[in-house]
Design a protein around this nucleic acid. Sequence first.
DNA 1: CCATAACTGTGTCCGTTAGACACAGTATAT
DNA 2: ATATACTGTGTCTAACGGACACAGTTATGG
Lengths: 242, 242
Amino acid sequence: MTPGQGTQAGPRAAFELLWGQRSAGKRGPRPTLSAAEIALAGIAVADADGLGAVTMQRVADDLGVTKMALYRYVPGKVELVALMIDTGMGEPPRLAEVAGGWRPRLRAWALGLFELFQRHPWTLEAAVGVRVMGPNELGWLEEAVAALAGTSLDGAQMLDVVVMLVGHARNLAQQTARPSGGSTEQAMGEAIAALVRGREDRFPALATALRSAAASGAQDQALEFGFDRILDGVELLIACRA
Amino acid sequence: MTPGQGTQAGPRAAFELLWGQRSAGKRGPRPTLSAAEIALAGIAVADADGLGAVTMQRVADDLGVTKMALYRYVPGKVELVALMIDTGMGEPPRLAEVAGGWRPRLRAWALGLFELFQRHPWTLEAAVGVRVMGPNELGWLEEAVAALAGTSLDGAQMLDVVVMLVGHARNLAQQTARPSGGSTEQAMGEAIAALVRGREDRFPALATALRSAAASGAQDQALEFGFDRILDGVELLIACRA
DNA sequence: CCATAACTGTGTCCGTTAGACACAGTATAT
DNA sequence: ATATACTGTGTCTAACGGACACAGTTATGG
């Protein structure tokens, strides 16, 4: 797409990289790198300077090799980013150790996902659109569905609940992302308030809501608030089905 | 960021483009274009061939001018994309005409947002991270908050509810996006099922959930399901506060 | 023990991208 | 009529992802 029309590899190559194991033919010089190392270097770059700074050149420089050497381990940049995402997710949390049934477990799961998005903000812009999920990402999904296994929900509903939680964690991480320390309510509130100021006639409801929010001083509860509402709704459904 | 280090204009330029009015000095030749026209051309390109195809060159070609002519109206590409987003949103829906109080109104609002994401899928990858909101985007927000104006919620809670709905609509549009007609449950379900197949031992809960979902045959209810759960939770809160 | 075959990393090249800048043409105000 | 402000164009650059040929390295088969 972007430059040079790229390799028309398609999602096939990404699948092989994420799920296939290195067959490791034995002949030839020892590989000085591995796809995992490259992914880690890319993650380091993305964490430090954003996804835009992740360049084959930059990653190669940080690893002390030439840009083209990376293509021995990684089919292309999109596949590298896909591997970065799955590597950055890491092992899914062990929810079986969380006591209290499905609700505290799902809550811990969603909170962990949110913290992950905060730790690696670039995943928000990297993991968009239809893409191939990796083993770790699927493992996260498995854990969440497993937490709902005992309930009266059917399979489709379980998946829908998980999608809801992902959406909320993701969307909230997105707004609390960049400006170096600004918290959720603060970042969003101040940005919007600055726009509404002087235009209260065009946005009256928004203006009063912002005044009320600023007066009550309650901050950074959007994440918890959303989880509470969603889980309340789910609990209601579970109760109705029993 | 990406190439050529770009203009270090910052969000200032985006704000001017989105909120400032063209002062329109009178001397010189008639401008053959306007920022709005350029944004519409960019939207057409993005709708047809994706955000990756939106190039200054491509947009300029479609408008019958040179690439550099665009820079007379638009500070740079990021500002153009910002204007594309706000233009693509269009006028916010008139919720006052929806009968039945806050719940049907919020539902209609969120559904409209979802349809908008489906109509312009590129907004999903364009509108990430902290960015300057435009007048239309703020107008959408105003409508949603206004729908909640009569309830017992305080300002911060109203904003939190809206954030939740945005997150769900966005996240769901993201999964039903590309593969040309694949519906939500189908697209996500089939993609995941293909990965789980042959690995049922690693993802047991997921495997049974997928089997159950496939058996029940219920499809494309993830959107409605999420809205119902969220609004149930909100209704519960409103009832508790009264 | 040696030759072959497979594998690795490097250098060079290409097309495309966003944007800078100087220039020529045009329409209005004085 | 002339100066001034504005428009669109052509040319240039740095950086990007990726193709490709090549030289160096190591395990394997004879």
